[in-house]
Design a binder for these strands. Structure first.
Length: 609
RNA sequence: GGAGCGGUAGUUAAGCUGGUUAUAACGCCGGCCUGUCACGCCGGAGGCCGCGGGUUCGAGUCCCGUCCGCUCCGCCA
């Protein structure tokens, strides 16, 4: 009995054969990318993850084999044995777009492993189909070269990270995913415990406390490429399960962590893009980022900085504009502006439409004026009301010139920043202020550390201070006294890494002193009883010699997304969830039987369908 | 929880102020074509216009509701 093609195994992949292989008998495996019948001569492009090789079935060589090849449709899975031949010598023309374009395989044996139905969409990069269809037929989608390239880049980044951290003496250590529920922060996914009726695990939203305890255990340098789970609403850059490169080290300072990460990031850039990044990275305080860009993750690839006009408007008591006067009369309110330059050629109608965009972000409206040749304000009600003195000062503060448009946003600081910062990004995309290559990869890389975050944020609803990063973040030196007296002014030893306007890493130096930890808990309004109940295990561990330590976590999927060129994590995660957290491929989540629930001592209160 | 955009052959879209039999391209099927490779030419099949209700003599089109996908705000220590 003859040897089957599968037993022979493939001799080459579909990107390998060239004129150097002429005359060789080869075995290839793959999928039918296309099938062309030219006067009885069948040409098939055979595709695997490596590339495409042309097969030719000659009727004069084997008419029966040709007839079988004629039947092969797109995505049929086949194996082939044949001889490498020169296309030109066969009377054909080479295809310069393929590495294998000078040769073709004259088939002598064909194994049909599996026929395929007509695929729901073509396996091509350029095909535009809805994300819904792609997710529902993910195996077909993942055959597209672009998706395979993305997953390969992802793999390379992961290996580069492991190599680098291993080289720096870090141990890759695993931590539990079924963990104790801890309140605060992101909503947890809960997992009922069958063996402990009425009790629940949480899926880890990060390995935070475990990695800190590794440090207390003397394990010194830890990393893990780890799945994390957060039951919050999704965005293009937020999935309910995502991957972090999680890092923690003892004897750490901000500089130590940041320098380490800069080395890691440099390797990742080199691996994915062949780009050399400049080190050390730029640093910017949280306050400066908010003030200049209205965001704690500013995109520095373009300007359009914001100008705070609050003091000017106060000085002029509204400058004749009642709206302005009213707003600054309330403490805490601010007025900020952003200029759209004349050369952007925004029509009045287009500028007016920005108000709808802003309203979608919670704004009540967007003040807007256009400067004429003399600096007068036109195209709006402000021009008639404003005093020339304030107008001149505003124009100068904003750096606005003739033909420019000034956008105003006023009210509570947080809303002003959300809206004006959001408009800045909206205009970035609308006006094409940043360039991308043909894959959608940014042509420019602006990376910076954002530092000096507040330690606490004030929760308007609960009327309490909550941890801005997490409750184990160390306050900055000299700020310990303010923990009780003025928590709002406390700064944290926390830092984020921002790449092209995306938060791609975040970390902090942790508290290693029980007394300081206690003060922070007090500032957070967590009772003695609560801190023992919720975090007792950590406080206990801290008692037996806790080294100074700190760390960081990199949002791995976001790095992959930016390096692959995209705006959605769904393109770099093989099997992602939709915005509603469902999986269109498997239909998860699904209802379960009453019996299953009973087994877990749970009853559903969801309305019956 | 809120705002916006979208849903019409397998796929991507067109379909105006409501009016015969809902178009096109790609794909699919058949035939032709001495060498294709975005092949070309000829022919063909293919539709609960997301779903439900309403207005109307008449709805893909207008109205209400609902489901699904995407973007944004809230949320994401």
């Amino acid at each position: 009995m003859s040897t089957t093609l599968l037993e022979r195994q493939r001799s080459h992949t579909c990107n390998q054969l060239t004129k150097a292989d002429l005359g060789k008998e080869v075995v290839l495996m793959g999928w039918v990318d296309s099938n062309r019948d030219h006067h009885g001569r069948i040409f098939i492009d055979l595709r695997d993850r490596y590339g495409i090789t042309q097969l030719v079935f000659k009727p004069e060589l084997d008419a029966a084999l040709r007839d079988r090849a004629h039947q092969l449709g797109r995505e049929y899975c086949v194996g082939i044995r044949g001889v490498v031949e020169d296309r030109a010598a066969n009377g054909g023309s080479p295809n310069p777009r393929l590495p294998t374009g000078e040769v073709e395989i004259s088939a002598v044996e064909l194994a049909l492993f599996n026929a395929a139905e007509t695929p729901p969409f073509l396996v091509e990069d350029k095909i535009e189909t809805s994300e819904e269809k792609r997710l529902a037929h993910r195996t077909v989608d993942l055959r597209r070269p672009r998706m395979q390239r993305n997953l390969i880049i992802r793999h390379k980044l992961m290996q580069a990270a492991r190599r680098y951290l291993d080289g720096q003496g870090f141990l890759e250590m695993e931590t539990p995913l079924l963990v104790k529920y801890t309140p605060g922060g992101a909503r947890n996914f809960l997992v009922p415990s069958r063996l402990n009726p009425g009790k629940f695990y949480a899926l880890a939203e990060s390995p935070q406390l475990y990695k800190q305890m590794f440090m207390m255990a003397g394990l010194d340098r830890y990393f893990q490429i780890v799945k994390c789970f957060r039951d919050e609403d999704l965005r293009g850059d937020r999935q309910p399960e995502f991957t972090q490169i999680d890092i923690e080290l003892s004897w750490a300072t901000e500089r130590v962590v940041q320098t380490l990460v800069e080395g890691l990031v440099a390797d990742m850039f080199k691996e994915a893009l062949g780009v050399t990044v400049e080190r050390p990275f730029q640093r910017m305080s949280y306050d400066e980022a908010m003030s200049r860009f209205g965001s704690d993750k500013p995109d520095l690839r373009f300007a359009m900085e914001h100008t705070d006009l609050t003091d000017i408007v106060k000085k002029h008591q509204g400058g004749g504009i009642k709206l302005f006067a009213d707003v600054v009369a309330t403490p805490g309110n601010i007025i900020k502006a952003m200029v759209i330059e004349k050369k952007r050629e925004m029509s009045r109608t287009e500028v007016d439409k920005l108000e709808d965009v802003a309203k979608g972000m919670g704004s009540k409206g967007v003040g807007r004026v256009r400067l004429d040749e003399t600096g007068q304000w036109t195209q709006g009600p402000f021009g008639k009301a404003v005093t020339p003195e304030m107008r001149a000062e505003v124009n100068q503060a904003c750096g606005a010139k003739a033909g420019d448009v000034i956008l105003f946003q006023l009210g509570k600081a947080s809303l002003v920043h959300t809206v004006l910062g959001g408009l800045r990004l909206h205009l970035r995309d609308k006006l094409g202020l940043v360039e991308h290559d043909e894959h959608g990869v940014s042509k420019q890389w602006k990376i910076l550390w954002v530092t000096d975050f507040p330690l606490f944020e004030y929760d308007e609803i609960g009327k309490t201070h909550v941890a801005a990063h997490h409750p184990f973040t160390s306050p900055q030196a000299g700020h310990e006294d303010k923990l009780t007296s003025d928590p709002g002014s406390c700064r944290a030893r926390a830092y984020d890494l921002v790449l092209n306007g995306n938060e791609v890493a975040g970390g902090s130096i942790r508290i290693h002193d029980g007394a300081v930890q206690s003060k922070v808990f007090t500032a957070l309004g967590i009772s003695e009883e609560d801190r023992q109940r919720k975090f007792g295990f950590l406080l206990e561990a801290m008692k037996y010699g806790c080294p100074p330590h700190g760390g960081i976590a990199l949002g791995f999927d976001r790095w992959a997304m930016l390096f692959c060129g995209g705006t959605s994590l769904r393109d770099v995660i093989a099997y992602p969830k939709t915005q509603k957290g469902t999986c269109l491929l498997t239909d998860a989540p699904t209802a379960v039987s009453e019996a299953q629930l009973k087994d877990l001592f749970i009853a559903s209160t969801a309305p019956q369908e």
